[in-house]
Design a protein around this nucleic acid. Structure first.
Length: 318
DNA sequence: TGTCATGAGGAACTATACTT
DNA sequence: AAGTATAGTTCCTCATGACA
C-alpha cells in the first residue's frame, strides 16, 4: 500500500526542500509525535518496514524521526526478523533425501508440463523423454545443492550462504543472495535471485562478472539495477546451483545446453519459490510452506515463457 | 560534439552512544 | 523507555578533461 506513495512522497519532499532552500518542508506538515508507541503504530511500522521503505520515509508516515524509528525497530528485531530455523532434523537417513529430491523433481516437471509455455518450448520438451530430461538436469546439480533441495524443511539462509560458488566457464545456474542494508533482516529483506548462464566460452563466470563489474547505469545488468532501485546490499554472494559442460561452440550443442539450463532454471525457480505470481498449480508443487522460508524468492521471469535464442540472434541475456 | 572515466562534495541512510 | 546527536557508510550528481 504505502509503496505506491513512496516515490511521489519522497521526491516531492526533496523537490520542495530544494525549492524552499532548506527550510524543511516537513516542518510545514504536522509536527512529529512524541511519547509511547501504540500497538497500532507498531503494526503500521512493521508493515512499512516490510516494504523496505527508508527509515526517513517511515518516519514521515508515522510522524516520528528516523532515528526513533530505527530504535523502535531495533527493539522489535526479535519479533520481526523472519522465521528462525524450523525445529526438526534436516539430516535424513541415507537415501531418503535423494528420494525426496527425485520425487520433487518429478513433481515440478509434471506441473511445468501442465503450465503455460511457448509453443517452441512445448515442442522442444517432447524431443527427449521425461527420464532423459530429468537425468540430465539432475546430473548437473551438485550434491550439496541436492541435499538442500531434498531437505524436509526449507534451507536456512545460512545453509544457502554456505553453498559454494564454482569457478567455471561452463554453463549452468546460479543464485545470488541479496540482503537489505539493515543489520537485522526480515524475510522481505533477504532475496534469493535465481538465474542461468549459457554463453559459450564464458558461462557462469561471465554472467557473474556481468553482475559484479562496476558499470555505468546504461550498461548495468537488470539485476544490478534492481538491486540499486530496491536499495539492497550490492555485494550479495553467488552460489552455484547447476553446472553443464559446454565444450563446443557448435550451434546444436549450444542450443541443447541452453535448453537444458533454462529448463533447469524453470524447475528450480518453482522449487525455490522464486517465481513471481506463480499459477496455483506451480505454487503447490513448491515443497515447502512459503511461510517458513527465510527469504523472498526472486527471478526475472518465467523461463518457459521466453524462447531460447541461438547464439547469433541477440543473446545478451544468456 | 558525444561519450567515457574520474573524483569531489554532499545527500541519504543506518548504527551507536548519549540525554532526558 | 523515549528522544537526540553524531559517526560511519554508501550512493548520487555534477564538473572536468581525455579521447575518438
Amino acid at each position: 500500500m504505502a509503496s505506491m506513495f513512496q516515490k511521489p512522497l519522497k521526491s516531492i519532499v526533496r523537490k520542495a526542500n530544494r525549492y524552499l532552500e532548506g527550510s524543511e518542508i516537513e516542518k510545514l506538515l504536522k509536527p512529529n509525535k512524541r511519547g509511547e508507541w501504540s500497538d497500532h503504530e507498531i503494526q503500521h511500522l512493521i508493515e512499512l518496514r516490510e516494504q523496505r521503505l527508508p527509515l526517513k520515509s517511515i518516519g514521515m508516515w508515522l510522524r516520528r524521526t528516523s532515528p526513533s524509528v530505527q530504535k523502535k525497530l531495533w527493539e522489535l528485531r526479535d519479533t520481526i526478523s523472519g522465521p528462525g530455523t524450523v525445529e526438526g532434523p534436516q539430516a535424513l537417513p541415507p537415501g531418503l533425501q535423494e528420494i525426496l529430491f527425485y520425487t520433487r523433481l518429478t513433481a515440478v516437471w509434471e506441473a511445468l508440463l501442465k503450465s503455460d509455455m511457448t509453443q517452441t518450448w512445448r515442442e522442444a520438451l517432447q524431443e527427449k523423454s521425461k527420464e532423459e530430461w530429468l537425468s540430465i538436469v539432475s546430473a548437473g546439480i551438485p550434491q550439496d545443492v541436492k541435499n538442500v533441495l531434498g531437505g524436509l524443511r526449507p534451507p536456512t539462509w545460512d545453509e544457502l550462504e554456505s553453498l559454494p560458488l564454482i569457478d567455471t566457464n561452463d554453463a549452468g545456474m546460479y543464485a545470488r543472495l541479496v540482503t537489505s542494508r539493515h543489520k537485522f533482516q526480515m524475510v522481505t529483506d533477504r532475496h534469493l535471485y535465481v538465474g542461468s548462464a549459457s554463453k559459450y566460452g564464458g558461462g557462469l563466470n561471465h554472467r557473474i562478472d556481468e553482475h559484479t563489474r562496476k558499470m555505468k547505469r546504461k550498461h548495468e545488468s537488470r539485476l544490478q539495477s534492481d538491486i540499486r532501485k530496491k536499495r539492497l546490499e550490492k555485494n550479495g554472494r553467488f552460489i552455484t546451483l547447476m553446472v553443464v559442460k559446454m565444450d563446443s561452440p557448435d550451434n546444436d550443442v549450444v542450443l541443447d545446453v541452453r535448453r537444458t539450463v533454462v529448463l533447469a532454471e524453470a524447475i528450480l525457480t518453482v522449487w525455490l519459490n522464486a517465481l513471481q505470481d506463480p499459477s496455483e498449480d506451480l505454487q503447490s508443487v513448491s515443497p515447502w510452506d512459503s511461510q517458513t522460508l527465510q527469504y523472498t524468492g526472486w527471478a526475472s521471469h518465467n523461463p518457459l515463457l521466453v524462447d531460447v535464442v541461438l547464439p547469433f540472434d541477440g543473446n545478451r541475456e544468456m
